[in-house]
Simulated scan of single mutants.
Amino acid sequence: MDLIALADFNLVARHGGFGRAARATGRPKATLSRRVTELEASLSLRLFERGARNLKLTEEGRALYERTAALLTEVDETAAAIASGAETPRGRLRISAPLLLSQTAMGKIAAGFALRHPEVRLEITAEDRPVDMIEEGYDLVIRVNPDPDETLVGRAFLRDRLVVVASPDLTRPRGELPAPAVVRGSSSPETWNFMTSKGPEKIRIEPVLSLSSLIMVRDAVRAGVGAARLPISLVDHDLADGTLQHWGDVEGSEIALWALYPSRRLLSARVSAFLEYLKQIFPNATPDELAAYISK
């Protein structure tokens, strides 16, 4: 494939037309049109629907643009960095992060990174769904306990665990009596198994509230409506000041936050800089570090 023709196709697709691309870049309109036509011929595909007054990407053209735009940008940035003799992070950095981490820490993380690297335009989307990095144009995703994926590489930069907590005014039930519980989502196990200083325990629960956000769950537990299973980093200071009491650690509840990027891409300077910044903030990757960072 002719990379120059591919780059010209991306210019036209990004600017929405041959004329606009020519005016924005100073390239002759006829040259851009010829290059795109040659690319279409080499691929045996129509990449644009050409109307009398407008230009529209075909389905195949849109797929090609979405898959190649970020790669060409990385090649350009790498070449510029090599030519300047320095790997200065610059350009757009798109990150998808889990909702809870975004609500508690990502704003502060983003601000600190932006102050350190002003030439990077950071964009963070908070969502819990598994995004397709290539299709949706993300440079980095943060995922909780991700499934193995041979197309992604990265590292765990934080670890956490679940604990059972409740208001000091709520007495832990004994025997077969159920404990009022605040749960996340509509499904929850009927019993909770957790480890105490005296050994393993099990209690039946009766959900009294079902909430979609762990922040909401924590606030409801603070109000005394029931017990909940929450990340220790989210309630560490509540436990320290007595706002909440610790019933036990949930067995097998280790949580790992991973920063991942596509294995087939060049690792850009901006991605490397963000990974290094996470390592500086959380050098030991412990729940205590995250709790302390959130409370600052």
Rank of each mutant, 00 (worst) to 15 (best):
E38C: 10
L209S: 13
D149H: 07
D128E: 10
A156K: 11
A21V: 07
A259H: 03
H246Q: 03
G242I: 08
P283D: 11
Y277T: 01
E87P: 00
R90L: 04
R204Q: 12
T88F: 00
A285E: 11
A220M: 12
T191Q: 14
A41Q: 14
N54T: 14
L278P: 06
K279C: 06
V221E: 11
T25W: 06
V208C: 07
L230T: 10
Q245D: 07
D128A: 05
E66A: 15
A110Y: 02
T196G: 11
A105N: 05
L260I: 07
A79I: 12
G16I: 03
I4H: 09
L64M: 13
A156T: 14
L275M: 12
S42K: 09
R161G: 01
L239T: 08
H15K: 03
A126P: 13
A69I: 13
R218Q: 14
K202P: 00
R172M: 14
L11E: 13
E254F: 04
Y277E: 08
M1A: 13
V183H: 02
I134F: 05
L11Y: 09
K279Y: 02
G248E: 12
A30N: 11
S212F: 10
S212G: 12
L158S: 04
S187D: 11
F113Q: 08
R264K: 09
V75C: 01
K202R: 15
A7G: 06
R159P: 00
R62P: 00
L260A: 07
G107H: 09
V235C: 14
